[in-house]
Design a protein around this nucleic acid. Structure first.
Lengths: 184, 184
DNA sequence: CAGTGTGAACAGTTTCACAGCA
DNA sequence: TGCTGTGAAACTGTTCACACTG
C-alpha cells in the first residue's frame, strides 16, 4: 500500500485483509508500543517502518545457502527474499560439477570450506541439503558464527540454545491438509 | 524407525527427538485415544499406523500443481511428498511453451482448462503461480471441486469456509529469523 | 465521533503430579 | 518397576468492552 499512495488504514481493514479480527491486530501492535492515530487508524508508511524495525528488517541481511539442488536452486531464483531485504550472498554445494558455477549473481563454493562465512560476517544459513547431511551442515554453520538457520530439510536439528532455527518442511505442511478436509 | 526393527519407543525418547517434553507427547496422543503400553512405551508400527489414520494419510492423495515455474518445478521433483503418500497427479501452466512438456511423469496441461481435476476427482490443489494470479487460481480450483489448497504465493487468499488453505510463504518465514537473532 | 489502546473476563494450552496398569 | 494416561493447577493467549483522544 505504501507505494500506492494510501495514507492510513484501520485495524479492521488490516484484519479483513489477512482474515483475523481487529482486536488481535490492535492488541498485538500494543505490545510493541502505540503507532496508531485514534479516530483515524494507522499511517501506512509509519506502520510499515515500525514493523520493519521491530522485526529487524530495516537492514539488509546476508544469508548463505548450503545445498544447490532442486530446492536450493529455486531459492536462489526466488524473488520474495528481496522484499524483506534478504540477500543470498553465498552458496555452497558438495558436487564438484556445481562448484564454480554461477547462479544468479553468486558463485557456488565448496561446502567443505565455509570459512568465507566468518570473514564476510554472514549470520544466516539456509540448509537445503539431503536430510542425512542436515545436522552436519548445521554444526558447520554454527561453527562459522551463524546465528540463525532456515532449515528446509525434513529433520529436527540440534543447535546451541542461542541459535534460532526455523524449519520449513513442505511435505509435512502438505500432510496437514487431509486432516482438515472432511470426507476425502 | 519402523523399517529399522525398533519395537517400541517411550514418550521421553520421542520428545527428545523433536525437542519437546514428554507430557506434551502423551497429552496430545491422549486426545485421540490411547495407543501406548504402560511401563513400556509406544509400539512403533502401531503408533505410526494410528497417526497416519488420524491425519488421513493412510490413503494416497492426488494433488494438482498449478504454475510450473521455479517453485512448481522444484515441487515436482521433491521426493518428500511420497513419504506422506501424496501424488502430484497433474500440473498446469499458462505458458504455451511449457504446455505439453513432460516433467517427472506428468504432462503439463493448460491452466485455462482445469476440468480434468473434476473428472479425476483430484481434491488437493497446489498454487505456485505469481502472487497476482493466486486468488484467480484459487477460485478456479474451488470451482473444480478441490477441498484443500497448499498456497505457495505470498498472498492471503479468500475461499469458502469449507475449503482448507495452508499458505507457505518462504520469504516470510525467513523474515521471522532476524527478530530472534540477538544483536545482528 | 470513529477508531485506538488496554484492563479485565474468558478460553485454550501447557505443565504438573500421580493413580493405574503391563 | 517404569511409563502411560489424565484430572487439576498454572500459565498463556484471545476476546470483550469501553475509556480516551486526534
Amino acid at each position: 500500500m505504501s507505494g500506492q499512495g494510501r495514507g492510513s488504514i484501520s485495524s479492521k481493514d488490516l484484519a479483513d485483509l489477512i482474515g483475523v479480527n481487529p482486536w488481535k491486530i490492535r492488541k498485538d501492535f500494543s505490545y510493541f508500543g502505540y503507532f496508531g492515530i485514534r479516530g483515524v487508524g494507522y499511517e501506512v508508511d509509519n506502520l510499515s517502518k515500525q514493523i520493519k524495525k521491530i522485526l529487524k528488517l530495516d537492514v539488509v541481511h546476508k544469508a548463505a545457502l548450503v545445498g544447490v539442488g532442486n530446492v536450493g536452486s529455486a531459492l536462489l531464483m526466488y524473488p520474495g527474499f528481496g522484499m524483506y531485504s534478504f540477500d543470498i550472498a553465498a552458496a555452497f554445494d558438495n558436487n564438484p560439477k556445481k562448484v564454480g558455477r554461477k547462479i544468479g549473481n553468486v558463485v557456488i563454493g565448496d561446502v567443505s570450506n565455509l570459512r568465507p562465512l566468518r570473514a564476510r560476517k554472514i549470520k544466516i544459513g539456509i540448509i537445503a541439503v539431503p536430510h542425512y547431511a542436515a545436522q552436519d551442515t548445521a554444526d558447520k554453520l554454527v561453527e562459522m558464527g551463524v546465528r540463525g538457520i532456515l532449515n528446509f530439510s525434513p529433520r529436527y536439528i540440534t543447535v546451541p540454545k542461542k541459535i534460532k532455527v526455523i524449519t520449513i518442511d513442505i511435505a509435512m505442511d502438505l500432510a496437514r491438509l487431509p486432516y482438515y478436509m472432511p470426507s476425502c
